[in-house]
């Protein structure tokens, strides 16, 4: 190698500079498009702004207005319902995984087909379920009519709309949790299972005391992706009800969209404030996740 001073410098410092050079392009775009906008949004939430004209300082006004806004409480409540009911995907996914964790002919194809709903976009899932629920010709009202004698238009009734959408969301989410658990079950220590069998452990007892503890990594990821999925819910609501009827199926993400991003949304400051609230809720979970990953890093 040439002994120019520059090459010498590079040679001496290669090891300490290299990581930053490898990081530079990725870190740069990530900062510009993800990290900095978080702070910009927090900043915007303190202003009154229509997105085009000048911004006027509003202090905490946007947040104060939120506290007086029934739509905000409705959205928050729905977010909570989403969060709780979406969690059903975790045990349901485990159930399906246990059902499919066998070795019979064609089981691989069955597993793939059970996973199918996760691969198609939520837009398509939303359309499928809109059809499934549609009064007059959908399958579900049809079944209801046979069972109870009258139809229920799930998405047209304020009390059912959110539950109808969550059910649609659970379909791909269960598939996702199922695949996580199938992988987890595949990696269970067979000796422990056999030893427990020798001790006459079986069924539910075996599942609870031997299997589920070994599935903890899978459960952790399933919970994380389900929480994130529940709080990110937007696509299905937009496709199936547009937040309605009468705003009854809004969640914070959709409410924010209506206020600041949609065709008629010009309340940037207010929208940003909603986003900040959603972000704060998410931050609780992100922190828990990071703390756990950090303790793993330390022990690794």
């Amino acid at each position: 190698m040439a002994a120019t001073p520059q090459a010498g410098f590079w040679k001496r410092n290669q090891r300490s500079l290299a990581p930053w050079l490898f990081l530079a392009p990725g870190l740069l775009v990530f900062m510009i498009y993800v990290i900095i906008p978080i702070f910009q949004s927090i900043w915007i939430s303190f202003y009154d702004w229509d997105g085009l004209g000048p911004k006027t300082w509003a202090g905490l006004d946007n947040y104060r207005n939120l506290l007086d806004d029934d739509s905000f409480y409705m959205s928050l409540k729905n977010n909570l319902i989403w969060l709780v009911l979406y969690m059903l995907a975790v045990p349901a996914g485990l159930g399906v995984a246990l059902f499919l964790n066998q070795t019979v002919a064609g089981i691989r194809l069955y597993k793939s087909l059970f996973f199918f709903p996760f691969v198609i976009s939520q837009v398509v899932v939303g359309l499928i379920f809109s059809w499934f629920y549609a009064p007059g010709f959908g399958l579900l009202p049809h079944i209801f009519k046979i069972l109870t004698g009258h139809e229920i238009a799930v998405l047209a009734e304020a009390k059912y709309a959110t539950y109808g959408i969550i059910a649609a969301g659970l379909w791909p989410q269960i598939a996702y949790c199922m695949i996580l658990y199938l992988t987890g079950l595949n990696n269970i220590n067979p000796e422990q299972v056999e030893a427990a069998r020798m001790d006459n452990a079986k069924g539910i007892y075996m599942l609870w005391h031997i299997i589920i503890p070994q599935l903890r990594p899978a459960t952790f990821i399933a919970v994380v992706v389900t929480v994130i999925g529940a709080l990110r819910s937007f696509d299905l609501i937009s496709i199936m009800t547009v937040g309605g009827p009468f705003g009854s199926s809004r969640v914070l993400s959709y409410f924010m969209y209506e206020q600041a991003l949609s065709e008629y949304g010009t309340a940037m400051g207010y929208g940003a404030a909603i986003a900040v609230v959603l972000f704060a809720i998410m931050l609780v979970f992100i922190t828990l996740f990071i703390v756990r990953m950090l303790s793993q890093e330390r022990t690794a």
Binding site: V34, I38, G51, L231, Y257, A260, G271, M282, I286
Partner: peptide, 30 residues
């Protein structure tokens, strides 16, 4: 591959950023 100061901080920045709600990015990104 590298051990350097700030390694874990950068790593967790990527991880955390990955989970933020889209809505908090939308206005500035647009």
């Amino acid at each position: 591959v590298y051990r350097f100061r700030g390694n874990l901080v950068v790593f967790f920045l990527f991880v955390a950023g990955n989970f933020v709600p889209f809505q908090i990015l939308a206005i500035p990104v647009r």
